[in-house]
Design a protein around this nucleic acid. Structure first.
Lengths: 349, 349
DNA sequence: TTGAAAGCGGTACCAG
DNA sequence: CTGGTACCGCTTTCAA
């Protein structure tokens, strides 16, 4: 475990001073250091595999080119981390690195995680959550440029820019897809109240109906939870022992797991999808929606784009003038994307 | 964005020198600093919310109390990150913090990520993968204490300790559970060759059979992939249009998604689970196995434990004597855990 | 019991 | 064009 080469080692090997090494390796050699020395320095650096100590750099420059990403449970939960992936894409392309800390849903850990990150001189902070949700901004976040991804500040006077999916439009377009297939009786398994995404998707569902002049039957929309069993039991309630005329011809689900449950129920009841029943998912969960049989038509959450957009605005405020911050809008909405597969089709009859 | 208080600020406020501040705040005040000064210092520190600059500390001490976690795709994939969660538990409890970098399956990024981490003086490195897999150790990892979680070095002379699940025993015990229910014709959907876990689970399946004196019917085990559709089509091959007498009475799957596909196929064929067919999963994927209808009996992967064990051995070598490294075994196997739910039951007839 | 000074690895300014 | 030096924030040794 021999220690890494330092600038001094390079200087000695090249027979120059540390300052010269610094200048040359930072591209400010021309006009300051003799061409010949420059070559020797570069040569020596290569030989010793020299790369500057980032710690020393941070201390000196008071900035680290590190962005701290704080996650509520993105890492540890069984949901994909494409928000972080997208954020990282952008960060790397702009010469920053990201480090992730996951608090496993324990908000008591937020403050200390942020303190840790701040103590390490991160240049910016991003808070990212698995599902859309309001959060209380941890104190430390306002001391450094910060951004929220998939979550937002509930305060009347929000302090931080946030990037979230456009759930209302998502819900509307999903419903419109079904409407276009001729469905007029579309049930909605709407997730549960604990998530702000649920009512927004319901709102979209209503908007689509009213735009199309189709009345919403209130008994067809209900909060069902988010998991397979909820979808299963919800579908059973809707379909089991009901005459074909009284059945909804399509079930729209607030996520893909619910849709899996619905498909399972339909199968047990001998209903063919999409011939007898169309099923619509939401989220486009990797390895679920695309591999179901039949593959699930769904409304894809733009996770990657959310991460990219959030990181872009963050880096813009870090690198651009800080002064403009107040001028920009505090919210970015990213559209969801309809993915048509095989679980939806024309309304029966 | 007023800068954080430094030790000097505290010293000034308390009317002492920086050194005194340092001593007191590090618990070495007694016998060196007057009781009264100590109180003033602590008071001042609290007042200014002083916490030492971790960057300066790292530079000074040549160690950072940070462990870098390099993930192939744990963060970004739709599989849960409990290995990282478990590792983080241990690290925090021992006064370390972890930072995660995910390379999104791009091994070309390994080296640079490690370089970044090393430049930031991480005290140790952990490489973690989503599924069990052999990896090529990135150069930089041997320059600092390191450990592998859920992956291993293929070299004849492995350099790094690794922690992996005991897949053979897992496969065996899963099969034994089915055997105990009286099943004698157990099909196996075995994942695919590209994962080293698949053949190990198959081996366990064979061992259980031979231990029980039940012959394995070779046409009943086949590589099927890992996703819902693979499970569906595999099950259809096994069950559709076959007389009850020729059907396997149980299907064991190499993961839970396959089991979902099998359940779907069974439902379409009018087969009741577990009355007509028992289904066994593997992995105990959160929000899949536990929420299926019926809930999936499965062999849980000890992800959390793997992370904890890996971090424990890593920190032991960092904090304990470095000399003992060579003496310890290079492999830790963590047992899987059978989770009995409702998808398995007595063999029909 | 206290404070001054050196040094961790860099960068940047300033004489020479 | 070059080398010396101060400084980033902290710990630790050493003299007073």
């Amino acid at each position: 475990m021999n220690r890494k080469a330092t600038a001094l080692d390079v200087a000695k090997l090249a027979g120059v001073s540390r300052s010269a090494v610094s200048l040359v390796l930072n591209g400010r050699g021309d006009g300051n250091v003799a061409k010949e020395s420059q070559d020797r320095i570069r040569q020596a650096a290569k030989e010793l595999k020299y790369s500057p100590n980032a710690i020393a750099l941070s201390l000196r420059n008071q900035r680290s080119r590190v962005i701290g990403i704080l996650s509520d449970e993105v890492v540890v939960s069984p949901f994909d981390g494409n928000i972080i992936g997208g954020a990282d894409d952008i960060a790397r392309s702009r010469g920053f690195v990201t480090v992730v800390m996951d608090t496993e849903r324990d908000t008591a850990r937020d403050a200390s995680a942020i303190e840790t990150l701040l103590d390490r001189q991160v240049d910016g902070l991003m808070y990212v959550t698995v599902g859309l949700k309001p959060i209380e901004i941890p104190q430390g976040m306002i001391r450094v440029p910060s951004v929220l991804a998939n979550c937002y500040d509930e305060q009347p006077q929000p302090q931080l820019h946030h990037v979230i999916p456009d759930e209302v439009t998502g819900g509307r377009e999903a419903t419109e897809h079904l409407l276009q297939w001729g469905h007029r009786d579309i049930a909605l398994l709407a997730g549960s109240e604990d998530s702000p995404a649920a009512p927004l998707r319901v709102q979209g569902y209503r908007e689509a109906h009213s735009l199309a002049g189709v009345p919403v039957r209130e008994e067809r929309v209900f909060m069902a939870g988010w998991d397979i069993d909820a979808g299963y039991h919800g579908a059973m309630k809707l379909l089991d022992d009901v005459s074909p005329a009284d059945r909804p011809t399509a079930i729209m689900c607030a996520n893909d797991r619910l849709a899996v449950g619905v498909a399972l129920a339909a199968a047990r009841l001998g209903l063919s999808v999409p011939r007898d029943l169309s099923i619509m998912g939401y989220d486009d969960e990797a390895r679920i929606a695309d591999t179901m049989v039949p593959a699930l038509t769904t409304m894809a959450l733009p996770l990657r784009e959310i991460g990219r957009a959030a990181m872009t605005t963050l880096l813009d405020t870090i690198e651009g003038g800080e002064g403009t911050t107040a001028a920009r809008s505090m919210e970015t909405m990213v559209p969801c994307r309809l993915v048509v597969r095989e679980s939806t089709g024309p309304a029966p009859r």
